[in-house]
């Protein structure tokens, strides 16, 4: 990639270097095919993956156009983070999520088409006006002090206001999402790990694992036979090595933390 990027840097005249042309003609069909496939794919995950293909190709195109920083940022931010979040949501929703052909909201498709065309026209005219009035300075001047430095200088001087406004917007959105997803809890309603652990080891409590649900046991001693549903003991539950005997109430009592000394009358 660096070879190609430097090749692109050197190409000041209008001829396109071979490496750049080859990469373009390989990646352009992939990018376009990914975009078309994304719309046509029935499976939501496949759709997302095809979009990832397009985004990756775009990233390489940026690198080819001597913008290595924006190319890498495109790959890290768009494919690495944003599309990953999309995938997350799709996977959590379910693996058999397919497009339903039934229109749930009435007139939804018509509205989508009108808005889409409108948005495309707005974007197109805006871009045409913006690009048409700009005279290109050329790569040599733009990348004079290095690509990253050039972007940093513009971003933090000329476009600082737009940059800050965008970040404020993003933070607002993030906080809004957090507020909407937040569930209000009274203090002390949700016990955290520390509280649970302290409760477990309070004086007089039995801290060990308790017998599983459905087990009719009265003690944690191996010598205690289990109780059958009719209330009688079953000898099968006690190992032959252990002499079967009736335990006294004290012996059968579950062992507890050092708080036992308080109830000394039982011991």
């Amino acid at each position: 990639m660096s070879l190609l990027a430097q090749g692109a840097l050197l190409a000041a005249d209008n001829t396109v270097p071979t490496g750049e042309a080859v990469t373009f003609w390989i990646l352009a069909p992939i990018a376009l095919g990914g975009a078309i496939g994304m719309v046509l794919a029935r499976n939501a995950v496949h759709s997302a993956l095809l979009l990832v293909c397009t985004m990756l190709s775009l990233g390489v195109f940026y690198v080819l156009q001597a913008g290595p920083f924006i190319g890498m940022v495109q790959i890290i931010v768009y494919t690495g983070a944003i599309m990953m979040l999309f995938l997350f949501v799709i996977m959590l929703v379910g693996r058999h999520t397919r497009d339903s052909l039934i229109e749930v909201l009435r007139g939804q498709r018509l509205a989508a088409v009108i808005l889409g065309v409108g948005f495309a026209m707005l974007l197109g005219t805006g871009l045409a006006r913006g690009v048409g009035s700009v005279t290109a300075k050329g790569l040599d001047e733009a990348n004079a002090n290095g690509n990253v430095e050039g972007i940093a200088k513009l971003l933090f001087t000329k476009y600082i206001f737009a940059f800050e406004v965008t970040s404020a917007l993003l933070i607002t959105a993030a906080i809004g999402a957090m507020l909407l997803a937040h569930i209000e809890k009274k203090p002390g309603e949700k016990l955290d790990q520390k509280v649970l652990s302290r409760n477990r080891f309070t004086k007089g409590n039995y801290p060990g694992p308790k017998s599983g649900p459905g087990v009719f046991a009265t003690s944690d001693s191996v010598a205690t036979p289990a109780i059958l549903p009719d209330g009688t003991f079953t000898e099968r539950s006690v190992s032959k090595v252990v002499p079967a005997r009736e335990l006294t109430l004290t012996e059968a009592r579950p062992k507890a933390t050092n708080g036992n000394k308080q109830d000394g009358e039982i011991r």
Binding site: S2, F69, V73, I75, T79, G80, F88, M91
Partner: peptide
């Protein structure tokens, strides 16, 4: 090779590697 944004290349690779795991 080396590029002006080489460290970002490594970050991008690890970011894309997650796709292997998730998929």
């Amino acid at each position: 090779t080396d590029v002006p944004v080489a460290v970002l290349v490594v970050l991008a690779c690890s970011g894309l590697g997650v796709y292997g795991i998730v998929l």
